[in-house]
Design a protein around this nucleic acid. Structure first.
Lengths: 341, 341
DNA sequence: AAAAACTGTACAATCGATTGCGCAAATTCA
DNA sequence: TGAATTTGCGCAATCGATTGTACAGTTTTT
């Protein structure tokens, strides 16, 4: 007893008008009389008519869906962004199609193909660690699919983006450490070719520079930003002499690694060693000591990208798509970096 | 310089055959000769032909997308499930369309409508806290859209589901507490009309029962499973006399609330009070003491639902869709529940 | 009053892939 | 050799919505 979907033809037949009139009435086309318009709309309501997106998409070439590509969907930051995107876009009748790259370029390229194939109206992308060029994005230009970056962006692609001011976040974090009295501050850095990690390093260097502190190369430890990377950084760093007084980590998991290593080596945090992270992962609030970190405003970021896309859709000008929004990060000061003296 | 998408007609023209031949060749239709088949496929490859999903969907009525509805996408468990789903389904050429309910029935109903409207091939659902009946699911039957539940399921709907054995998880957790020597164990429970929370309570009761412990009503505290709920439960529970010796919480955040309240009230964990949670949120490993909890196998669950759906797609029998898979949860024993005596 | 402009609607093509039907050529069978 | 079957492929309808064009009837302009 399958009830088929109601079509405009069903409505048309019921009202003795043509399907095109129904279509126009539903779009509030000016050339449809008030009376038939309301009649059609009432009938559509009554039958719970839902337009067939496939048909509309086929004809119009626009699918009312947006593709989202993230490294991993189950990272707190990314799922927050997706949450924000979903809220804003669903309100305007758009759907989300989600792909993960697992930080691999090949997956990213195939996700792009998949989404082109699905005729998405736009792609919202945060590039993988492996991504260093934009070859895989060429197809989008050819097919005139809009592209937006968030958080991790390729510098040389002219397109809209919403990022957080990573340099500022790092700067604030390091400045805070300096104000607390920590001087010899190690930076546990991420892969330098990713814009955000590069920017975090820059912020670190600027803060140190302004404080008149020379940063030797050994103070910058590029590591995988995971617990193990943090542990490794701790061991390497604590072998220096004089010993470092604080670690500014470009990621929370690395900071966690440093913290755990410090504890198991009998180093007191924050008294003997200050630690700050980056990302405001939920667990950071519950660590002991709780971890100072930088919030990247994932939800807000998602909403802003959505808004940027929706703006572009309204004015059909395909230009003006390359607005670049930079959000202010928020330094969240917790116990891992507070020296009471 | 927009390059339009390549269609079967382009390929047909190039090879001087008809579009239908191209279509059949690409589907390995038996009535197409080996030679033209390979010629078509080679040409399709060369032109990087991608079928237009909208057109295929319109004609065939199947969209090659699956709708997923979760309470919140940025909860660790749900994003793990989605990750698992995405991996398995992408491999078979399916896309995911994701909606969140924010635990509200109205949102769930409208998400269903949205997905019906998008002509998804199936809907994979974990119901919201507010959902108590299946009225909003009726439309799916009429439209013959397959439905699968994961984790949170409605008992009275005949459809496939993958859940974790919540009762067992709770049982194992409470049994572990009992083996450690804790006797007066409070249960911080979730809303009882949700199958999973009901099952966790049952597991608790069974373990207590087997240990010959009578559970007075006051030991079961139904609270919102968040930090505040845990704090409230701690305060209520510790007012009992004799004082409880452990808290088994139906959620990790509630357990965190209990833990924090215990600490700020000078109650030592695990010496004076054992605590266990449920869900294996990432932060639980980093608490002090680290929190004993139950892992729900989110990634595996996602993969299994995906597999169940794919199996149904193969054999076009619309029956046999109501297989019910129950996964074994894993008790993760950490420091918050270990009494060394 | 004739011409011009506007209103309201229908017709039909279109988007791209799928598929039932039909037909000719090739092959098998009697 | 003629009939029956099989093979290979094209034609044309179809899915449902959109949209340019046409056209009759009305209203406005000159």
């Amino acid at each position: 007893m399958k009830k088929p979907h109601v079509t405009i033809h069903d409505i048309a037949k019921e009202l003795n008008v043509s399907a095109s009139t129904v279509s126009r009435a539903l779009q509030n086309h000016p050339r449809i009389s008030e009376s038939t318009r309301t009649a059609v709309q009432k009938m559509a309501e009554q039958y719970n008519y839902q337009p067939n997106v496939a048909a509309a998409s086929l004809r119009s070439g626009r699918s009312k869906t947006v593709g989202v590509i993230v490294p991993r969907i189950n990272r707190n930051f990314f799922s927050n962004v997706i949450g924000g995107l979903e809220e804003s876009l669903a309100a305007s009748g758009y759907h989300l199609m989600i792909c993960q790259t697992h930080e691999q370029y090949a997956n990213e390229a195939s996700a792009i193909q998949t989404l082109i194939n699905a005729r998405v109206d736009a792609i919202i992308l945060s590039i993988s660690m492996e991504t260093r060029n934009n070859e895989h994005l060429q197809g989008l230009m050819e097919k005139e699919i809009r592209l937006f970056f968030f958080d991790r962006a390729l510098e040389d692609v002219e397109t809209g983006s919403v990022v957080v001011d990573d340099k500022l976040g790092a700067y604030l974090s390091v400045k805070h450490l300096l104000e607390q009295g920590y001087r010899r501050i190690i930076h546990v850095a991420g892969a330098d070719h990713i814009n955000i990690y590069h920017a975090r390093k820059e912020g670190y260097l600027q803060a140190m520079n302004e404080a008149g502190i020379e940063v030797p190369d050994q103070w910058i430890l590029e590591k995988p930003l995971m617990v193990q990377g943090g542990e490794a950084a701790f061991l390497t760093g604590m072998n220096l002499s004089p010993k470092p007084e604080a670690f500014f980590c470009a990621g929370d998991y690395a900071a966690l690694g440093v913290l755990q290593a410090a504890k198991s080596n009998g180093v007191n945090v924050p008294e003997d060693l200050g630690i700050t992270g980056f990302a405001n992962e939920p667990f950071t609030a519950f660590l002991e000591p709780s971890l100072t970190t930088v919030d990247q405003k994932g939800g807000v970021m998602g909403k802003m990208v959505a808004q940027m896309f929706l703006n572009c859709e309204e004015k059909t000008t395909l230009s003006a798509t390359c607005e670049k929004i930079v959000l202010q990060p928020e330094l969240i000061i917790r116990n891992s970096s507070i020296l009471n003296r």
